[in-house]
Design a protein around this nucleic acid. Sequence first.
DNA 1: GCCCGACTTTGACTCAGATCAAGCGGGTAA
DNA 2: TTACCCGCTTGATCTGAGTCAAAGTCGGGC
Lengths: 248, 248
Amino acid sequence: MAQRQLAFPQPDCADCPIRHRAVCARCETDELEQLESIKYYRNFEAGQTIVWAGDRMDFVASVVHGVASLTQTMEDGRRQMVGLLLPSDFLGRPTRESAPYDVTATTDLQLCCFRRGPFKDMLKTNPHISQRLLEMTLDELDAAREWMLLLGRKTAREKIASFLTIIARRDAMVSQTQATGEVSFDLPLTREAMADYLGLTLETVSRQMSSLKKDGVIKLEGKRHIHVPDFEVLLDETGDDDDGGVLE
Amino acid sequence: MAQRQLAFPQPDCADCPIRHRAVCARCETDELEQLESIKYYRNFEAGQTIVWAGDRMDFVASVVHGVASLTQTMEDGRRQMVGLLLPSDFLGRPTRESAPYDVTATTDLQLCCFRRGPFKDMLKTNPHISQRLLEMTLDELDAAREWMLLLGRKTAREKIASFLTIIARRDAMVSQTQATGEVSFDLPLTREAMADYLGLTLETVSRQMSSLKKDGVIKLEGKRHIHVPDFEVLLDETGDDDDGGVLE
DNA sequence: GCCCGACTTTGACTCAGATCAAGCGGGTAA
DNA sequence: TTACCCGCTTGATCTGAGTCAAAGTCGGGC
């Protein structure tokens, strides 16, 4: 793969795009300065592996731009994605020496890294960081449990529809809108990575995408750009409660 | 169901069986006294529902005795267990008003409950509690990710074998031993609850149990008591790395 | 402008686990 | 003692998703 120059600038915390959602969201100016002294940026190209399961990992990080995934692999090659990290998500465990999963950049990616030791020390003394990290970890646990329902009980079609709504919603969140009515977005994953996410084969992913297209639930523009004429129709295909469990 | 009297005593923190593993594990004597003032015990019989998804939940709790489960249900009745709480595990989210899952006692159960508001306040001021809670939440996230691999990629036989090793290991941990060689333990779940845990039907659970029995991997004594002549043989059936991912 | 390789789609066939349907065993209520 | 219920087992059949195989598409490099 040719070495491209990645275009991500290295922002100051003050104008960082994830300033108000990342692990540092609740930090005051002086706390940011402290963080700034142990932080550094790393860029990765789509497809690059960031760490292999079992490798030493002496940093933790926030995703600034792009998408990273956590994947488990069995001895015979079966793979299951167990984490999908979008901008502002946190990577790594302050008290752990080595990575338990493969971490891969699924798109071009920028991480804001903190050296693990100093970060761990800050956690002890800085409640703004430790409380925020707890909150984010609990959110991730909730997401993992939704994901378990998907893996254990949903049909292939429901899995695909659910995945599309997840991406659409996270996309909407970034642009400060609500996913309703007409929606379009880019898929950050190949069909194979979608299969790893959903516990399917890539052929089944492809077939179900075609089926949703045939039924007019989605339109494909290229392989990666999705247009949804009516988001509510897509929601009906997920098998979830109509409202996404928010009200009622 | 006849109202039985549950036999759990109400321990002082000082001689609580989960004193050194629960959310309060790192508290000092004076901090325990503070916790003691907002804590109360509740007992449940096997099968009782503790809260329904969507219900207001104004306490958080530690499991002292017994087993509780978190379950998600789809509109058409498909069910997936998303949490299995054994002694010392933590239940509830300090900042959340209502339960997102059904919580059920799968065996007779004792909870050590804390009123949510006061507990949340203690979290803010007491780093021993908040750090311990973070650590426990991260452990639970790891467990959820193992579970995702199981749900997404393992065969029915591997799922059963994996479940048995999980129970055997947690049992061994309580009795301060290692699960190796000859092992026996009780299943805390019905076949139906196992099916909900594993993303299978109860018929498939039953068939695979029979199959493992026929192959000499396990012996059944009654429906609930499992005897494993050689734990390593059971491990080979899980599809995981031989060593459980601990060393090597 | 064409070629190459990575990614994707589609088809034919198979099979693991679901579904539908009996029947068993042991605890308990009458 | 009998009847019943609940949790469980087993059998027969069906089907959704996996597997194996082939062909299509698109974007970047030369």
